[in-house]
Simulated assay, not measured.
Amino acid sequence: MLDALTLDQIRTFVAIADSGSFRAAAQKLSRVQSGVSVAIANLEAQLGVQLFDRSGHRPRLTPQGQILLGAARDIIVRVDMFRANARDFAAGVEIELSVAVDTLYPMESVGRAIAQMRQDFPAVAVRVQVEPLGGPLEALRRKRCLLAIMVGEDFRDPRIRFEALAPIAQIAVVASAHPLAAAEKHRTIGAEILSDHLQIVLSDPSTLSEGRDFGVLSSQTCRVNTQDAKHHLILGGVGWGRLPLWLVERDLIEGRLVRLNAAALGRRGEAASQAYLAHRLDEALGPASRRLAENLMGTTPTDNRQALTL
């Protein structure tokens, strides 16, 4: 009966195929040769298939044995992974790791850090939520995530630890066909000119910025809830706005967007904000989340790192 198959039999089958003989397999498995022979004979009887041709000096895989060898290897790998995952969970490795990321932070960098973490902890599920402004901090406060990446100094909480990652540059941009693009070619654009045109602004999903606006110069606004929506509306010529430099570099190079030399928003319309890795002081990080944090911090030069509790 197939239900009577054992992992020992499957490992013995693979060991013989890998070592080339029953004797070598017995040495590899620290068993007597007769025990190896009996294990394979029982396996072949249970399968109803001859796995090795024993007519020559050395056993050779039969055509059926060659096909089943791949399946046998897969079974061993999966069982070994099963055991490794169980050991990890017993050691306190997280079942799921949740991360909230500020929409201004490049997701590619987050992806590389997660991929590196999963090389050591492949069984850990990952959940990533991308939110602007106070969204990541609120996710930490409500324990909807264990780690958060926040940009800027506008939102703080004494229960949260902040570690500096890298500065994120934002620039004021507009579509190349927008009237402001023509005005930009001739002079520095003042706040009074910008206020005459629609500004695309991100809405805060949290209540942390209630009654406050960040970088809003125009009385005419179009509020959106995602960075992608803001980016595409600006590309479509609806209005102007600030976007992270990493997001719009190609648009600038290829002429779809134009930088606005708006002194009210920084030199040449550019301002840099510090990105931080944040987590709650009352929530211990597990092995996988610690590794992810290390990977994220590893993308930042050592002399730029600093731990802050604000």
Rank of each mutant, 00 (worst) to 15 (best):
R142G: 09
R142Y: 10
K143G: 09
K143I: 14
L146I: 08
L146P: 04
L146W: 06
A148R: 06
I149R: 00
M150R: 06
D154M: 12
R156T: 15
D157S: 15
P158T: 12
R159H: 10
I160Y: 04
E163L: 13
E163Q: 15
E163K: 06
L165R: 09
A166C: 09
A166Y: 06
P167V: 03
I168K: 02
I168D: 02
A169S: 13
I171N: 03
I171P: 02
I171S: 07
V174S: 03
A175K: 01
S176A: 15
S176C: 11
A177K: 13
A177Q: 13
H178P: 04
A182I: 09
A182H: 15
A182T: 15
K185A: 14
R187C: 14
G190S: 12
G190V: 06
G190W: 07
A191W: 12
E192L: 13
I193F: 03
I193N: 02
L194H: 03
S195P: 01
D196K: 11
L198N: 04
L198S: 06
Q199M: 03
Q199H: 04
Q199N: 02
I200L: 07
I200A: 01
P205G: 06
S206H: 11
S206E: 07
T207S: 12
T207K: 10
L208C: 08
L208E: 05
E210Q: 13
G211S: 10
D213G: 15
D213F: 09
D213M: 10
F214Q: 04
G215P: 05
L217R: 04
L217A: 09
S219L: 11
Q220M: 07
Q220A: 07
T221N: 05
T221W: 03
R223P: 00
V224M: 03
V224Q: 00
N225W: 13
T226Y: 11
T226K: 12
Q227H: 14
A229P: 00
A229D: 06
K230N: 01
H231M: 05
H232Y: 11
L233S: 01
L235W: 06
G236I: 03
V238C: 08
W240S: 03
G241W: 01
R242E: 10
R242W: 03
L243P: 01
L243M: 09
W246E: 11
L247Y: 14
V248C: 04
V248T: 03
R250T: 15
D251C: 13
I253D: 14
L257I: 10
L260S: 00
N261F: 08
A262I: 06
A262G: 12
A263C: 14
A264Q: 02
L265S: 12
R268P: 07
R268I: 05
E270I: 09
A271D: 05
A272W: 09
S273H: 08
Q274T: 15
A275M: 05
Y276H: 08
H279N: 09
H279L: 04
L281N: 09
L281T: 13
